[in-house]
Design a protein around this nucleic acid. Structure first.
Lengths: 338, 338
DNA sequence: GGCTGCTAGGAAAGCGCTTACCTATGCGAT
DNA sequence: ATCGCATAGGTAAGCGCTTTCCTAGCAGCC
């Protein structure tokens, strides 16, 4: 690997001059020398060693992102927003997948600190686990103490900048719409109960139903894995356990698709007999048949805002932005059958 | 940020000793000192500066990945394979999105070189553009000259390690199956013609059809954007231009979903009047109605193999692995109507 | 007891870069 | 002709770490 010294030698100048030319420093350099340096750079295919630069002038150019899983469409969209803003700021992005393992999240925060990243964006759901939350907060604080910036998305564990989707509002929207269409015997296909995302959405739904005079009994909520198979399983259980069920609320679109698959397999007409609604408005929601009624979260925007907070000027106090959820009505939701 | 010197001072030892304790160097250190160092590390929340470490002991721990777009399910799956292997090797991953912009790919290679990454994996499709290909090869060679490793996935621009999906075979499979079911008036919903992925798939399809005695006329191929909307547009054009069309081949699943949407909007029964097949077997293929017949590519495996080549022992010569494509038959493909 | 031979720990160099500081040159002013 | 000053360029320190090389101390031996 060619070094600055090599360039300087070849151009017949001092390393200082070479550095000044390459970085476009404010100090003026004679055209003749500048030329020679530039030619040497080209000849040697010189690229400055980013680590040495970082050591000499602590100006961080990389940001770290910790998500549950980039291959999950939810995080794929989110990540796209994060990336766009990071790129606009001229920052590279290190993406770490925690695969929903809290320990791994902790490890990654540590690793990113060692990498001296300019900022860490932690995306995903929080956990109902006080010990973990405390450890995470502690690690983030240690990182921030070194001048790093932190923003979280979709979780509120951190006493700094956060961007949140309106999960609870979304649950409410769904509940209100179901009631409006006459649904009262409603089953909920829920993801893991430890995730704050799940409980937030559920809280909203519960509140809307209770306000409408039809509180949700505990046995009408089934917790399962946050994916297609989990959705199918929970939907099956609810169908068996709740006679006269007219609607199924899945707490994300993957689970909703699983529920749809199960209903079709059992020959249950959707929405003729049972309506299905999802959450997130992932691309698949529009592609299935019947197209899924769901709650749209501005995922790209969520990511973009988080990165903007993380890379923008720091605030003296905690900032929490909540981005609104909107209802997207499609074919999978009909009136409750008589 | 606490430094090694801080730790050493607090423990009352030299930086050398502190370093030895922290890195578990082979040199023995008295238990008493070791203890003191460890305590100091914990007290100060010391994390070694990865850049300084890298400078002092050039042992790279980060790998770079350049993809078109992580939020595209194709790359999301691929990336998952890449990540898994990288993590198994204890490597962090920097993900760069080129958004299908060749210039940006070039830039990212440069940036990753500056970051002294251990390896660069370039994923996506190649371009039919000799100038670009040459520039890319040149940049990759410059990077390799510094001891970096390179592997490419889904493209063959690089004279080193490569992992390829059997795109041409996949096209053949599709063509053969269509003929077997009596389809001869076939339209092709193709992505951008500059992508080698497209032309490879098309070549296979063409070959199979020609061998079956039904060569594909050029006007039955429509090139459009590689996404849902492009698929809908191209499908519409073909429907208008080719009377008696019985099958639509989309060169990826997104386009196929777009075609499906258009056919439904026009009230064309699928597969009753027109069959539709896709390519890639992305998750959505199983979720749409009718479920999509498509070609499965082992995307996760593809990514995993590429990263394995990139991080494993170097070969003295170019290695190209081709991973097989398989046909997945679902409901969207039926016999040609009489 | 004096020597050798070992070991634990420290001093210091050096990784590639930036930049504060210094030197030498050339110009205009006196 | 002398002085001062601006300016272009070089010298060297230092970023945080690893590691080679060295020193001091000690046990074991004759």
């Amino acid at each position: 690997m060619a070094t600055l010294a090599d360039v300087a030698r070849r151009a017949g100048v001092s390393p200082a001059t070479a550095s000044r030319v390459i970085n476009g420093s404010s100090k003026p350099v004679a055209d003749e020398l500048r030329e020679r340096v530039l030619r040497a750079v080209a000849d040697l295919r010189y690229v400055p060693n980013a680590h040495a630069q970082l050591l000499a002038r602590p100006q961080r150019s990389v940001v770290g992102v910790v998500v549950h899983d980039v291959s999950d469409p939810y995080f794929a969209e989110l990540t796209r927003g994060l990336q766009r803003v990071a790129t606009d700021h001229g920052r590279l992005v290190i993406i770490c997948n925690s695969y929903r393992d809290p320990e791994r999240e902790l490890e990654y925060v540590e690793l990113l600190r060692a990498q001296q990243v300019a900022a860490i964006v932690l995306a995903g759901s929080g956990y109902h686990d006080a010990t973990f939350t405390a450890r995470l907060a502690e690690k983030l604080a240690a990182y921030e103490a070194t001048g790093g910036r932190v923003a979280v998305v979709g979780r509120h564990e951190h006493p700094g900048d956060a961007v949140m989707p309106a999960n609870t509002d979304g649950g409410r929207l769904l509940g209100a719409e179901l009631l409006r269409r006459g649904h009262t015997r409603i089953g909920v296909v829920a993801g893991p109960q430890v995730l704050t995302t799940i409980t937030d959405r559920l809280d909203g739904l519960r509140a809307a139903l209770a306000e409408g005079g039809h509180p949700l009994p505990a046995e009408r909520v089934r917790y399962a894995d946050f994916d297609r198979d989990g959705g199918a399983r929970a939907a099956g259980e609810l169908l068996d356990a709740v006679p006269g069920l007219t609607a199924l609320v899945a707490l994300n679109d993957s689970m909703a698709v699983g529920a749809l698959t199960l209903l079709r397999a059992r020959g249950v007409p959707v929405p003729g007999q049972v309506s299905v609604v999802g959450f997130d408005d992932m691309p698949v929601a529009a592609d299935v048949t019947p197209a899924l009624t769901t709650v749209r979260l501005p995922l790209v925007e969520l990511g973009a805002r988080a990165m903007t907070l993380a890379l923008g000027p720091p605030a003296d106090r905690s900032r929490v932005e909540v981005l609104p959820a909107t209802l997207v009505v499609r074919d999978s939701l009909g009136p409750a059958p008589a």
